[in-house]
Design a protein around this nucleic acid. Sequence first.
RNA 1: GCGAAAGUGGCGGAACUGGCAGACGCGCUAGACUUAGGAUCUAGUGGCUCACGCCGUGGGGGUUCGAGUCCCCCCUUUCGCACCA
Length: 811
Amino acid sequence: MSVENYSPGEIEPKWREYWISNSLHEATDDDPRPKYYCLDMFPYPSGSGLHVGHWRSYVLPDCWSRYKWLRGFKVLHPMGWDAFGSPAENDAIQKGIHPAVSTQRNVENFKRQLHEIGAMYDWSREINTTDPGYYKWTQWIFVKMFKAGLAYKTFMPVNWCPSCKTGIANEDVVNGRCERCGTEVTKKELNQWMLRITKYADRLLTGLEKLDWPEKVKTMQTNWIGRSEGAEVTFIAIAANGTEHPLNIFTTRPDTLFGATYMVMAPEHPLVKALTSAEQAQAVDAYVEQVKSERDVDRAARTEKTGVFTGAYAINPVNNEKIPIWIADYVLMAYGTGAIMAVPAHDERDYEFAKTFGLEIREVISSTPGVAEKAFIGEGTMINSGRFTGTPSAEGRKAIVKWLEEKGLGRATVNYKLRDWVFSRQRYWGEPIPIIHCSINCGLVPVPEEDLPVGLPDVERYQPTGTGESPLAAIHDWVNTRCPNCGGPAKRETDTMPQWAGSSWYFLRYASPRAEDTLITEKGREWLPVDMYVGGVEHAILHLLYARFFTMFLHDIGVVDFDEPFSRLFNQGMITYVGKSGKAEKMSKSKGNVVNPDPLVRDFGCDSLRMYELFVGPPELDAEWSDHGIEGVYRFLKRAWHWVLMHNGRWTASPSEKILRSRHVLIKNVTERLETFRMNTIVSSFMEFVNDIASTNEPPDQETIEAFLTALAPFAPHFSEELWQRTGHKPSIFLQKWPAWDEAYTKSKKVTVAVQINGKLRGTILVQAEAPEATVLETATKDPAITRYLDGKQIRKKIYVKNRILNLVVA
RNA sequence: GCGAAAGUGGCGGAACUGGCAGACGCGCUAGACUUAGGAUCUAGUGGCUCACGCCGUGGGGGUUCGAGUCCCCCCUUUCGCACCA
């Protein structure tokens, strides 16, 4: 008999329409079921469309959300737009289109494409960072931070992108280049807004422990925060002219203090001028200039050590020894105190420097290899260390710090690599920083909370000025205002926030996206925190660190009652494809290796593409796109379609043992593999099921059909919904319960046991499941394929693993 | 240089605590049905011998009755970090 063909092009739009018009995907606060919040990383609505690589990152969380839904949770799975940012602004500069217009257009296009994926987003909660109703709260958070002393403005050299014409954060610099545009970053002295993220360094570090995140991401954050324990020690620097200056250094190895044979200051260190001798002045100046003019990339690329002697000396507090002070660019002004004591015997960098300039290397920790060849950086017993000689180094560290503290010459401290966050951008398309500069004497005054948002005004020219002022500075009507404090003349802050601002707290807003008087409502709070956060590993540091910082702050001011926003994080691998370069790379327009999903959806349907996106490989790994792979999934769906409809309405009441076993094995596999995120193997499970069952002509029972369709629904939602209806059920299949399995049915009565002789496979035998060793042995020794290896031999050892293997050791 | 992940047929990839390596899919081969098929179905498909058998999970050692899986050494690829004292 013939049944109607599977035509995804007809059924898919129909069901999407149905789900939306029935508000099936909308999360409601009053739903009594337990909540589950699954979040995709915030997309920037770019002008170019979605490719199959993007698809992958949306398919997985959608399947997961639908699964959780069938598991009885009320699921919040929202979507919105991180729509501030430079691409729209660059477009505005080049084409004169208002960023708001192009953003709106891109959002619509993006939304249409996401729609094609069939994802169950709750569009009633859509948010957009450029919406004044949204950025009102971004500004509100800033004001709260300002009031808490976490936002401050200061002159400092910052990373400056000459192409974007704006200062950027340390986190935005990748290998000396601007993370956004790839231009080499330079330094520029600017008056910048900063956020005191360093105040949260310890919490950002310890908070990682309780998170269910990939270790890789935790490690990256840990390294970025870069906590190290040590001591600050005061040396007395004696300038060439005889004046004395306290010179603080940071060290993690105070136990090596007796091995300090010279000191090094960063070339930018403020004491350099005062300490330098007349004879060395010229060399020092030249070196300082050279370092200043050198690009960071070159400085980092250079491996050999450079430096100059200042002509000054310092007194080592532990032994009153006089040691020379050098300047060298291997000491960074931005870390610690910008000066170090150099212990060449026990520090690789100092060792190299000492070798280069012929400075003394004094061993103070005993070791087997010694320090003749290279620095010894391990632990050992202190030697040549006065009264500390003989102390184990770990103990000596504490003892010396204690001694320094008693003498007032030092103290135990902790240092971090993490720096405060440069939060100013001299760009147009961002949230205005809600601060007013009073021209009389109130200084920096936050915009009163009730006056928020500070709207982003229209400008005539979007072009960054390049002078360190944003285009907003040119709008005099807007800039000139009154001081909220004294009513006197005042000017608005014209810097805007970085794109990270809006995305640092957006996940909170989804919980009550339309609330006007509060960032988050009481009811909304119940949805939080995010249970599952899915996105690429490229946000391992920046976004995730900022979002955690914002959340901790909002926790501290009572806005939320948790301090970690994302309980579980899953990093998707990306899709690679062979483009012009001849090797598989991340898809991008410029590489010319983008695969457009539209023709695939047209020819095979969204469900096939969804399943193929999962089938390409383990979700956490990168996967290479294959052009023909989707056909296998498509064939599977067609076979399944025909199998269901062929038996439709003629279900048997007494399914065969084979059908029952196949069903229970399927449900077990799919469930277990979902829970462990092995999505690629789930698709295989379904294929095996259909291969096993559809090849027989045995009619299935109704329960098997229902279980099959329900389990398939998260992956091929349109397909399942359509067949659900065709098999006489009322939509929606997503109102069903996830099917259960019975372990007893998953086991077959007979099992194949492999028989090995001396560890080599010699045959297989079919025995009753759970058969005892004696029975298996008896069966095996009757099998001619096996006995021929036993003839004339003695069985010396028998190893039997139930239902699996029998290994006979013979001689 | 440091750290992490990975290396399995022609290809993408399976293999839970050590227990029949290659599930599933692509591709390929043969056949069936077809006016035709790049549709569908059936069978086959790691290598060498193609009979018995032998060899096979990046390479080399080891533990074990038994190793893709555990231990040691090395190679390759990818991704992070890169003078952080």
